[in-house]
Amino acid sequence: MSKRERIMIITDSVSMPRQNVKYEDTWIYLFKNRFMEFDVIDRPARGSTSMRLVQEGGGGFDLLELYTPDRVILQQGLAECAPRLFKKNGFEKKFINTYLPAKIRSDYIKAVKAKRGRNPEFTDVNHIQFRYNVSNFAERCAKLNVKLAIIKILKPTDLYLSKSPFIKQNIDLYNSIYHEISERYDNVTIIDPVKPDIDVNLICLDELHINSEGHKLYFKEVENYFKKVK
């Protein structure tokens, strides 16, 4: 009996079902239904970041070495590149969470939003760590002869930009790192579901997540990738 091609899918909440998007509407479901000959391992996680690639299962083994996939589809990046109000492990965040009463803490956060806003340098995973994490994963894939397809980080909607004006520059930076890694490693391919002529506002149900039409776009681009490599 011939071995089925094994596909590992690593995603964040962009690719997951949610209110108004059933599981059957997601690009992952559409992919599984279209390519039933594949052995698909689906590893989604809300708030997923590239830290999973080097930590999950001890050194990231739960997302690669322990499953020995033939190909990996990676879709994440938005959670880690998003500008935040406070530095993740900074004194200010620790102080307000530890010492301020709930009402004062809430008022303080509102004031920071109004006066200072989200800082592009305050991210859950900074771009240097992000580059290391993805490069490390790509290199491990290469050593195992695993092909890695990376879905670019979703462009920001107008709603997202109104809340976080610096989000686009961070998305562009982190996507440029994806491209840099794809140029360095022959086993890495970039998938871009949202072409320049597509209005991202029409394929999203909020500032962060794609709707059923968006999932169809993602599926179509992933399908095209597999048509080329089969």
Rank of each mutant, 00 (worst) to 15 (best):
M1K: 07
R6Y: 08
M8L: 15
V14D: 10
V14N: 13
P17F: 05
Q19F: 08
V21I: 11
Y23I: 02
T26K: 01
W27Y: 14
W27M: 02
W27F: 10
I28L: 03
L30A: 10
L30E: 12
F31E: 06
F31H: 01
R34C: 13
M36S: 15
G47I: 02
G47M: 06
M51K: 14
V54D: 02
L63D: 11
L66C: 07
Y67F: 14
T68A: 14
P69T: 04
L74M: 11
Q75K: 01
A79N: 13
A82Q: 13
L85G: 07
F86L: 06
K87H: 14
G90E: 10
G90P: 14
F91P: 09
F95N: 02
I96D: 08
Y99W: 13
Y99V: 10
L100Q: 04
R105W: 06
D107F: 06
I109S: 10
K110H: 11
V112A: 07
A114N: 11
A114V: 03
R118I: 00
N119C: 10
V125R: 05
N126M: 03
I128W: 07
Q129D: 15
F130D: 09
R131M: 09
N133R: 00
V134G: 11
V134E: 13
V134N: 12
L144R: 11
I150Q: 08
I150W: 04
K155P: 15
L159D: 15
L159E: 15
S162Y: 03
S164H: 04
S164Q: 06
S164G: 03
P165W: 03
F166Q: 10
K168V: 03
I171D: 15
L173V: 03
N175K: 00
S176K: 05
Y178S: 02
I181K: 04
S182N: 07
E183G: 14
R184D: 13
N187P: 03
I190N: 07
I191N: 09
K195E: 15
D206M: 00
I210D: 10
E213S: 10
K216T: 08
L217A: 06
F219M: 01
E221I: 00
E223R: 02
V229N: 12
